[in-house]
C-alpha cells in the first residue's frame, strides 16, 4: 500500500512538474511571440475616472537589446507638466533592473529603486511594472496551468504566475493566453490579500510588419473603479534606434 501511495505521489509530482514545465513554456512562447531587434511606439493613454471624466497622456517608448540587456527609454510628451521627463530601464539577465529618471525640474539624472515600480505610471491605472508586464522575464515567476477555457471565442490556456520576489506588487497573476496565437489576451492581478486589483485586456490587435500586435489595451482598477485605455498610435519594429539612446546623455539632452 505504501509502495502504491509513493508511486501515486511520484506520479502526481511528475504531472505537476510537467504541468509547470508546460506552463513555463507557454508563458515563454507568449513573451517571445514577437521577435524584433527594436520596438518603437508612441502611445496615447486615456484615463477615465469614476465620474467618467477623461484625461490624456502621450508617451514614446523605445526598446532594444543592448549588450545582452533589455533596455527601454520612455519619453514623456504630454501633458505639458511632465514634458521632457525621460525614464530609462536596463534589465540585464539575472540581475535587478536598473532605473534612472531625468526630471527637468531636477536638472539631473537620478537613479531610482525598482521598489517604486508599483507606483502609478503618470497617474494612469498602469504601474511602472505594468508598462513592462508583457516583457517581464519569465524566470521571475513560477507558472502553473490553472485550466483551459474560451475567452471571447478564443481557446485559451489560463496560467497562474506567482512572482518569486515576495516584495513584488502582485501576489499572483492569472493570464489568458490564446492557444492559436500565444497572445496574453487578459491578465488579472491580485494583491497580497489575494483580492483582485487590476484587469488588463487586449481589445484590439493589428498586423504590423507581419506581427500580430496589440494596438489597444485597457487596464481597469477593480477597487478604484477607474480605467486607462492605451492606444498605440505608432508602432515600428526593427526601426533604427542608436544604442546611445539608452544612456545618461540621452536622458539629459534627448539626443542620442
Amino acid at each position: 500500500m505504501k509502495r502504491i501511495a509513493s508511486a501515486a505521489a511520484a506520479l502526481a509530482l511528475a504531472v505537476l512538474a510537467a504541468s509547470a514545465q508546460d506552463a513555463q513554456a507557454i508563458a515563454r512562447a507568449a513573451r517571445d511571440r514577437i521577435r524584433a531587434d527594436t520596438v518603437s511606439t508612441r502611445a496615447r493613454m486615456v484615463i477615465t475616472d469614476k465620474s467618467g471624466a477623461q484625461t490624456e497622456r502621450l508617451v514614446d517608448q523605445y526598446s532594444a537589446t543592448v549588450d545582452g540587456a533589455d533596455a527601454t527609454m520612455i519619453v514623456f510628451q504630454k501633458p505639458a507638466s511632465v514634458a521632457g521627463t525621460r525614464f530609462l530601464t536596463i534589465q540585464a539577465p539575472g540581475k535587478p533592473e536598473d532605473r534612472w529618471i531625468f526630471l527637468p525640474s531636477l536638472g539631473k539624472v537620478r537613479r531610482i529603486s525598482a521598489g517604486e515600480g508599483s507606483g502609478s505610471f503618470m497617474g494612469t491605472d498602469f504601474s511602472y511594472d505594468d508598462v513592462s508586464l508583457m516583457d517581464r522575464d519569465v524566470d521571475l515567476d513560477t507558472f502553473t496551468l490553472a485550466r483551459e477555457e474560451t475567452l471571447d471565442g478564443k481557446a485559451c490556456w489560463v496560467l497562474e504566475a506567482r512572482p518569486k520576489d515576495p516584495g513584488y506588487q502582485y501576489s499572483r497573476m492569472l493570464l489568458w493566453i490564446g492557444k492559436a496565437d500565444s497572445i496574453s489576451w487578459k491578465i488579472e492581478m491580485y494583491d497580497r490579500r489575494d483580492a483582485p486589483v487590476k484587469v488588463l485586456t487586449i481589445d484590439k490587435v493589428q498586423d504590423i510588419q507581419g506581427r500580430l500586435s496589440p494596438v489597444q489595451t485597457t487596464v481597469r482598477s477593480v477597487q478604484a473603479g477607474t480605467s486607462t485605455v492605451l492606444f498605440v498610435d505608432i508602432l515600428k519594429y526593427d526601426d533604427k534606434i542608436p544604442p546611445t539612446v539608452f544612456t545618461v546623455r540621452f536622458l539629459e539632452t534627448g539626443r542620442p
Binding site: R42, K78, I234, D239, K240
Partner: peptide, 26 residues
C-alpha cells in the same frame, strides 16, 4: 518620434508631439 525613417506626411499619427515651428515654446 524615432531615430530612423522619416515620418510619412500622409500618416497623421506620425505627426510630432512638438509643433513644427522654428521655436518651440513651453
Amino acid at each position: 518620434f524615432g531615430f530612423g525613417t522619416e515620418p510619412s506626411p500622409e500618416d497623421p499619427a506620425a505627426a510630432p508631439a512638438r509643433a513644427a515651428l522654428p521655436v518651440e515654446a513651453r
